[in-house]
């Protein structure tokens, strides 16, 4: 409904995941939650819980070990959701592009809506991105968004989806 949709951008709750970044962007996210930049002005709560989040703030170029967790967390966020890739390594791999244990940007795994530049990205840039993400969030449909890759063998994915009652909606390839 239109009425409810208009409230999406007034209450974006964020989930932050570090997929292998140098923690420069992470401390800037923390700084953005601090008094000077105070993300709570926009209604942001750092929930730390995918199930209650709208905005997925990811930092880091996706290392091998964090891939599954990234996808798992992403699929636990209920739609509508927005993914923000914070920092240049998250966006494109940055300086880690091409290293053997990284995957050059999170958009190899999950659909990203906003890419934030900067190494490290500053709170201003993060706020800009969130403002931009809110516009995107408002216009999103509630269609299920799926990650590009799921983990585990194909069988278990099918099992999992049918068990989670999602099979009828998500057609996995």
């Amino acid at each position: 409904m239109k009425f409810f949709t208009s409230f999406r951008k007034k209450s974006p709750w964020i989930l932050h995941y570090n997929a292998g970044s140098c923690n420069g962007c992470d401390i800037e996210i923390l700084a953005a939650l601090g008094p000077k930049f105070d993300l709570e002005r926009f209604g942001v709560i750092n929930t730390g819980n995918p199930k209650q989040s709208d905005i997925f703030l990811v930092t880091g170029p996706v290392t091998y070990r964090s891939r599954e967790r990234l996808v798992e967390l992403y699929s636990q966020i209920p739609e509508p959701k927005v993914v923000i890739a914070v920092g240049s390594c998250t966006t494109t791999g940055g300086v880690f592009r091409g290293m053997y244990n990284v995957e050059d940007g999170i958009d190899q795994y999950i659909p990203v809506d906003v890419y934030v530049p900067g190494c490290a990205s500053t709170p201003q840039l993060i706020i800009d991105a969130i403002v931009k993400a809110l516009e995107i969030l408002e216009n999103k449909s509630k269609e299920i968004e799926k990650p590009f890759k799921l983990f585990g063998s194909v069988e278990t994915i099918g099992n999992k989806l049918s068990r989670l009652n999602m099979a009828k909606r998500v057609k996995h390839d």
């Binding site: 570090n18 292998g20 970044s21 880091g60 170029p61 290392t63 091998y64 070990r65 964090s66 967790r69 880690f96 091409g98 290293m99 053997y100 244990n101 990284v102």
Partner: peptide
């Protein structure tokens, strides 16, 4: 502790 392993040591000598 290995979630953030990117392979910097190797990259420093190769790339």
């Amino acid at each position: 502790v290995g979630f953030v392993h990117r392979g910097v040591e190797l990259a420093c000598t190769r790339s």
